[in-house]
Amino acid sequence: MIGFEVETLIAILLGVARGATPLVFAAIGELITEKSGVLNLGVEGMMLVGAVAGFIAVVATGSPTLGFFAAMLAGALLASLFAFLVLVLHTNQVASGLALTIFGVGVSAFFGLGYIGTPIKGPQAIHIPVLTDIPVIGPLLFGHDIMVYLAFVLVAATAWFLSKSRWGMILRAVGESHHAAHAIGYPVVMIRFFAILFGGAMCGLAGAYISLIYTPMWAENMTAGRGWIALALVVFATWKPGRALIGAYLFGGVTILQLNVQSLGVDVSAHLMNMLPYIATILVLVLISRDETKIRLNAPACLGKPFRADG
């Protein structure tokens, strides 16, 4: 009896990591974009395009690695459209981001139509002999799929990049004061372009994680608002990578709780339980935004503001 419960618990905790990982990738991508001073509300659209591109690539080649690369490419491609609009044509970032999401939803549904219900074999959890076989700790530490570990590496690398590396500081300078950065001679537009592209690639990866590992299948609109939750996570994290990771795991927990609450014997309508991650997002946003000064001190000062070299 006890053994059974421990196994359920392990399964739930592994599920938390699977729920959190796409949020980590998307939130880190958006965090870098926002640190450069650009608000891209197209996360959901880029995730969907990444999800469908990764899925199609895996169906075509059978290689999950190629799938993830295709997803990054597709996400970055869509992001470059956004970059062109906001950086070259100086369009409103909020409207352009919304356009990106609307477009991404349509394009992914269009290309994915022939793939609904197609079965694939996604990447499996790793298994290291001896280590993974250690009771309890083994599967929890060494029993995830490779992307779960990569998400941690990405968070650490991003934290280092932003606080310790030269280019990370330039990126932050561009986001804090694009005029000053421009005056010193940094290529503001170029840096923002690459930040947007990186954000797109990470969102693509996040989408592919959902279509290749989390579900694994393709369905229209399958990201189900996770892109928006990732956007909220960036605010929740006050633009700090480590806190984004914690936030993502909290949300992963809420998602899994919602899936498992009935198996735990609580009689609540599944439809009402489905609301949980979205209500949690609102609550978290309210709690964190209540302190206006804290947000203002942490948000990149030029977030959402257009930059023109000539004035």
């Binding site: 608002g225 956007l231 439809h271 609102i282």
Partner: peptide, 27 residues
């Protein structure tokens, strides 16, 4: 009251409303 971004809250509430409708027509 709390300075919460209306883009995110209004969008999250859309999902909540859809699930609420699902709950009502199933219950």
């Amino acid at each position: 009251r709390f300075h919460a971004n209306e883009i995110l809250t209004s969008l999250m509430l859309t999902y909540v409303a859809t699930f609420f409708l699902g709950y009502l027509v199933n219950g």
